[in-house]
Computed example of a mutant assay.
Amino acid sequence: MKKAMMATWSESEESSKEEKKKEVANMCFMAIDELDEVNSNFSDEDMHDVFEELYKDFEKLSLKNISLKKKIQQLEKELEEVKEKFSIVEISKTHLEKENEILRKKNEWLTSSLSIFHCGQKYLEIILTSQKCVFEKQGLGFKYSKN
């Protein structure tokens, strides 16, 4: 393991106000290697084996990444298809709502027409029942004779 240390310094000279505004911190990074003994015990063969394992892992992850990208593309295509179908359904919905409103108004008109017809039929029946028979001529100035 390596530890990183940071050191900063600044100019100790006095500077003008303009230079203070533009003051920059100078940084220096140092690495301290605590495990030099452990790192030195690895041989080139061991490092090569570890590198090969890492490379195999990289290839596996690369293949998985490629398959996931293909799956993402497929899902994006499906999403576009679903969006298109949804827009068609929305258009159909608005069309059906308009048709439903038209049919509702027509139903109201037919209901009111039927009620008017029904009332007219009742009035006609009242008038017909209150009339006299066709052959009855009394009350019109007709005198009944026995001939």
Rank of each mutant, 00 (worst) to 15 (best):
S12M: 12
G141I: 04
K146L: 15
S40I: 03
Q138M: 06
D33H: 09
K22L: 11
T111Q: 00
S115W: 11
L68P: 05
M30D: 00
N147P: 01
K64C: 08
Y144V: 01
S67E: 15
S16T: 01
K143H: 02
E136A: 04
E90K: 05
K77F: 02
E13K: 14
Q121C: 03
K83Q: 08
A7H: 14
E108I: 09
E97A: 11
E11P: 15
S12R: 14
K64H: 01
I91R: 09
E108K: 02
V38P: 11
S112W: 09
M27G: 05
K56W: 07
E14P: 04
E19V: 04
E37K: 15
I127L: 15
L124T: 00
V38K: 14
E101C: 07
E80V: 05
L110W: 04
L54E: 00
L68G: 06
M27C: 05
T94N: 09
F142D: 06
Q73M: 03
V89R: 03
K122R: 09
K105S: 13
S67G: 05
A31H: 06
K3Q: 10
K56E: 13
I88C: 04
E37W: 00
K143V: 07
L114M: 04
E11C: 15
E23Y: 01
Q74V: 04
I102G: 01
M47H: 02
D44R: 03
K21T: 04
K106P: 03
Q74I: 10
L68E: 10
E11W: 12
M6A: 11
V134W: 03
T8L: 02
S10D: 14
K137W: 07
D44L: 15
Y144T: 08
A25V: 14
Q131I: 02
S16W: 15
S62Y: 10
C133Q: 13
E19K: 09
W109M: 14
S145T: 05
H95E: 14
M1R: 10
Y123P: 10
H118K: 12
E14R: 12
E99K: 15
L96G: 01
K132V: 01
N147R: 08
A4K: 13
K56S: 09
F58C: 01
T129Q: 15
A7Y: 12
K56A: 10
M47Y: 10
F117G: 04
C119I: 12
E99D: 06
K64R: 11
S92Y: 02
I88P: 04
M6W: 11
N65F: 05
K98A: 11
E53Q: 08
F86V: 02
I102R: 09
E13G: 13
T129F: 15
E90C: 08
L96A: 13
L140W: 03
A4R: 14
E18F: 06
L63N: 06
G120R: 06
A31Y: 14
Y123A: 13
E108R: 00
F51C: 03
I116H: 08
E101L: 07
N147D: 02
Q73Y: 11
E11F: 00
